[in-house]
Structure formats: C-alpha cells, structure tokens
Amino acid sequence: MSSLSKMLGVLDLFGPQRLKVDPDTIADHMGLSRATVYRYVKDLCAAGLLTRVDAGSYGLGPRIIELDWMMRQYDPILLAGRELMHGLSEDTGLAVFASVFYDGRIINTYIAEPSDTYRFAFGRGQPLPFFRGAQSKVLIAYQKGRRLQRLFEEQLAQDPSSPYDWESFNKAAKKIRKDGYCITHDELNLGLTGIAAPIISPDLDEVIGSLAAVGTSDNFKLLRQETVTEMVIETAQRIATNIHAPSDSRQA
C-alpha cells in the first residue's frame, strides 16, 4: 500500500459512531508512528479534507462539502431523475429517495420531500443497514451470482442478530427480483412504509441505484399501495432511460 493510500485511509476511520478522531486513535487503528500520523494529519488539513474541531481532535473538512456539491452536479441518477423524483413526491405526498450501493455501503444520495415533517433514522449520506429497508433490499437482491453469496457471507452469516440463513436470504432476494420491487414496514423507521424499485442500466443490465417512496401508515391509507408501486417502478425505469438519452431529449 502506498503512502498516499495509507494517508487517505485515515478518512475511513470516520463513521456515524466516530465523527472526530485524535492522533492516538489514528495511530492505534492504523499501526502508524505518531510522527507519521502528524504528517498525514497536516497534509489532510492542508487539502481541506480534515479540520481541527477541538484540542487534539479532527473532523472532516470543508473540502468534503465542496466535493459533495460537485458530485451532485454530475451524478447520473440525479441529472436524469431529480425532476422525476420531485414529481413523484408531489403526486403522492411521499418522500422519494435515490440510493446507491458502493464499496459494501448503501447510502441515500438524494431525498425529495413534500415537506420537512418527516424524521428519518437514515438520511442523505448516512449508511443504511445491510438488507434492511426497501432501498437496501432492492440494491442487494439485484447483485449477481457469486457476489450475492459473498455479500451474505461477509455481512450476515456471522451476525447473530440476523434473521437470515443463506437459504432464506437467497429466497427473499429471488422474490424481490421476480416482483421487480420491494415493500417494507417499520424496518428503518417505526411507523413508515417504503416501496423501492431498482434503477437498471440498459447498457450494462445491472442495478446502478434504487428509487424508493416512503411514508406513514396514514399516508398509505389515502393511496392505493398497488398504484404507488406502479408509479415507483415506472419512475425508476424512466430515470434509467434518461441516463442514456441525450440531455436535450430527456422528459421530466
């Protein structure tokens, strides 16, 4: 591993349960000398990737926010689907999520909400639990072949709290692929229902994201669940089509 890779590895120490780190934590987790740690921290701060947050501790720096803004300007799913997501949210009164799976993590990249009244346990950018919640289940279920089994072995097989063995997990994944969508209740937020569908790349024939509509039980009492499911699937398909269409021909 190069020195650059090791230095950037410091960023991997951050997570929902560790929002700031100190040099001792970096040294202990990465097996580095204090001199090396201080050199890495100095360089990361100079690049804006870290910033001092209190005496002896560091948090993620303002460059992360800048990179996030730039990413949202060219993210294919957002460019192709932002207006469609807001349209779906306005038509249903539900919150609409775009989510992706990368490097073993599932995150929401964008949320279109009809209001700010929702309180989500997992908002934009916060990693979602593995195979829990409609977005997560769709993204995992559409992984292919041995990758699906490897994900099970790495994420669920050793988890004593998991309700799945390989047979039940594989069966659940197959059902999602057969149905073309997933519906969950109370899995991420008590009192909320989520309906998610995959965004499939026509060129690659693989899942590149998921689209989900989320609302309360009261929301769904006013809507036909079957109708919302159809709307979510159709919107996900339109986003996938838009991704591969010329920008001037995209239909909002």
Rank of each mutant, 00 (worst) to 15 (best):
T92V: 10
L78V: 09
A95Q: 03
H86D: 10
I140V: 15
L94R: 01
G61E: 09
G145V: 01
Y74E: 09
R119V: 13
K137S: 01
T51I: 12
D54W: 07
R146Y: 02
D54P: 06
E154F: 00
T109K: 04
N108Q: 07
S99N: 02
G145K: 06
K137C: 00
E83T: 13
L50M: 12
A46L: 07
G93A: 08
Y110W: 10
Q135C: 15
G125P: 05
K42H: 03
I64Y: 01
P76H: 11
L128F: 07
E66M: 08
E83L: 13
S33F: 02
G133T: 10
M71N: 14
A121W: 00
G59N: 04
S115L: 00
A46P: 01
L79E: 13
M71L: 13
Y102C: 10
K42L: 07
R63L: 11
G59Y: 00
G61V: 13
R124S: 10
S33L: 07
F120L: 14
A112V: 01
N108V: 05
A35V: 14
Q155P: 00
I107H: 02
L151E: 04
D43Q: 05
L50Q: 11
L156V: 04
G133F: 13
L78F: 04
R147N: 09
P114D: 06
A80M: 03
M71K: 07
S99T: 05
A98V: 14
R147Q: 14
L156D: 04
R34N: 03
L151C: 03
I107A: 01
A134N: 10
L88P: 04
R119H: 08
R34L: 07
D103I: 10
F131M: 12
A98G: 15
R124E: 15
L50H: 12
Y38A: 03
Q143G: 06
G87D: 14
V37A: 04
M71Q: 13
A112L: 01
L44H: 02
G123V: 08
L79P: 09
I107K: 06
L128R: 01
Y142V: 13
A141T: 06
F122Q: 01
Y142Q: 11
K137Q: 08
T51G: 12
R105I: 04
P129F: 02
Q135N: 15
G145C: 04
D91R: 00
M71C: 11
D43H: 02
I65E: 15
A55I: 08
E83A: 15
D43L: 09
Y118Q: 03
L60I: 15
E153N: 08
V53G: 08
P76Q: 09
Y58P: 01
T51F: 10
G59P: 02
L94S: 04
R146V: 05
N108T: 14
A55Y: 05
S33E: 14
S57A: 03
Y118I: 14
L156S: 05
L139F: 08
G123S: 09
G133W: 12
A55V: 04
I65L: 10
L139T: 09
L67K: 06
I107Y: 00
G48W: 06
A46Q: 12
D75M: 09
G59C: 03
E66F: 10
Q155E: 11
R150E: 11
F152H: 09
G133Y: 14
R147I: 10
A55T: 08
T117F: 03
L84W: 06
R105W: 01
G81F: 13
A141M: 14
R39S: 09
